[in-house]
Design a protein around this nucleic acid. Sequence first.
DNA 1: TGTTTATATGAACATTCATACATACTTTTG
DNA 2: CAAAAGTATGTATGAATGTTCATATAAACA
Lengths: 89, 89
Amino acid sequence: MAVVAYKINREKLEKAAYILKTVAHPTRLAIVDLLRLNDRLSVNEIGDTLEVEQSLLSHHLITMKLKGILRSEKEGQSVYYSLKERDVT
Amino acid sequence: MAVVAYKINREKLEKAAYILKTVAHPTRLAIVDLLRLNDRLSVNEIGDTLEVEQSLLSHHLITMKLKGILRSEKEGQSVYYSLKERDVT
DNA sequence: TGTTTATATGAACATTCATACATACTTTTG
DNA sequence: CAAAAGTATGTATGAATGTTCATATAAACA
């Protein structure tokens, strides 16, 4: 018996996998979750809450920003991150 | 101002990330999607549809089975895979 | 202006993952 | 029983990722 037609194309799958992959990490999931509850947070606030080392956190944040999951805005010496799309969850 | 209480624990995050990570791959996403549309499929049927090399496909399937995403049942010389939880999507 | 605070950057290294290839195992069939 | 079909397994290898550490940059403040 024939397999039900498969219409999802390679490209879409790759895009989806790409996004999933970015979020599929305990710390990054935590960040997304935190930002779901708090509209925006500074790197410091996130670091204090999650207890992640500064540089590592920065790497994670920048990665997620690059992949279009987060946005950031600088204000004074702080940088505030927030979810780019409210429905990532 | 205080960060909104963070109640999700490390363990849950790790479990979630673990599952996400497993699925966060184009081929594996495609498999899940295929099995969403077809209740169960043999390795061969999946391979033909997705055009993935036999051994590689087997590795993917077994990985997903190990991580609790798929289930399998042998019937004759074929092995049929299906989603373990219908709501993975 | 020198120092402190907040964040980013880059390099080095370790770990994990994806893929390919060769081969093994099991069931069916001639 | 030998061969074929379907699937699994093990290993090697390269590529991608995660983490750490040292250092840079920028803003605020004494």
